[in-house]
Computed example of a mutant assay.
Amino acid sequence: MEETNVSLKLLIDRESQRVLFAEAGKEFIDFLFHSLALPIGTLVPLFEKQGIQGSFGNIYESIKNLGSIYLQPSVNKDTLLRPKVHISGGGTGLPLLLQNIESSSTFMKLYSCPRSGSACDAYLAYDFSAICPSCKNVMNREKNMVDPPTPSASTERGYVKGLVTYTVMDDLVVKPMSTISTITLLNKFNVQEFGALEEKVVNLGMDEVVKILKASLYSKSVLTDVFLLRMSRPEEDEPA
């Protein structure tokens, strides 16, 4: 399967060997926000008061703090912050980072009770061996769930608006980028030698996606761990 061309522009401090922050477009921010829709995202509100290890909780806080003007009109913050998980045989996946991967089928199979015109019509199942809660018959009548129409070119998918560049911190805090905020960040990091700063563009594939998700659960320096340390010790990524 062919992956989309999603990239990050990292600002690296060579002296401290860390990623200060990254510039990212809509695709990467959509991916981060979409990660809350994974099953683990339902646990974040439970840990909100006690605190959560790593940087995953910062994605949650970034959504809470991001102004509504940056979100698509159809996006409801509550949907992201308190997602409802629907488990099906299709698995979860990461569609927002892999936008150009089209499913080989345009619908999924659903099943209903063979008794129509009754209270049984209120129930649907993913499995044809499911039992109807109303009449206890096997729900083996096949139905199809059709995908919504493909959005037009003028309709953006995802969570945040395009034509905006975002700052992604090493710990995955997300904010809209501006010249003033960049200068503030450089002062915050006490950067003395601008010659020690290096820009590096990295492309994201499924390997990097998995590493980011894993690192976000335990690390406060996700971008450094995934990109900078990996580049300095490439042998660690090699299979044993």
Rank of each mutant, 00 (worst) to 15 (best):
I69W: 12
Y70G: 08
L71I: 06
L71P: 02
L71S: 05
P73Y: 05
P73L: 02
S74E: 07
S74H: 11
V75F: 08
N76E: 08
N76F: 06
K77R: 13
K77H: 11
D78L: 13
L80R: 04
L80W: 03
K84D: 13
G89N: 13
G89A: 15
G91C: 14
G91E: 14
T92V: 14
T92P: 08
G93K: 10
P95I: 06
P95V: 03
P95M: 06
P95L: 04
L98A: 13
Q99Y: 12
Q99G: 13
Q99R: 14
Q99W: 11
N100C: 12
I101C: 09
I101K: 12
E102Y: 15
E102K: 15
S103F: 08
S104T: 07
S105Y: 14
S105K: 14
F107Q: 11
M108H: 07
L110V: 06
C113E: 03
P114Y: 02
R115Y: 00
S116H: 07
S116M: 08
G117S: 07
G117E: 07
A119S: 11
D121F: 04
L124Y: 03
L124C: 02
A125K: 01
Y126I: 08
F128V: 07
S129C: 10
S129A: 13
S129E: 13
A130S: 11
C132Q: 01
S134K: 05
C135M: 00
N137R: 01
N137K: 03
V138D: 03
M139F: 03
R141L: 08
R141T: 08
E142S: 07
E142G: 05
K143N: 13
N144W: 14
V146H: 12
P148L: 00
T155H: 12
E156W: 01
R157L: 14
G158N: 04
V160A: 01
K161R: 15
K161Y: 09
K161I: 11
G162K: 10
L163E: 07
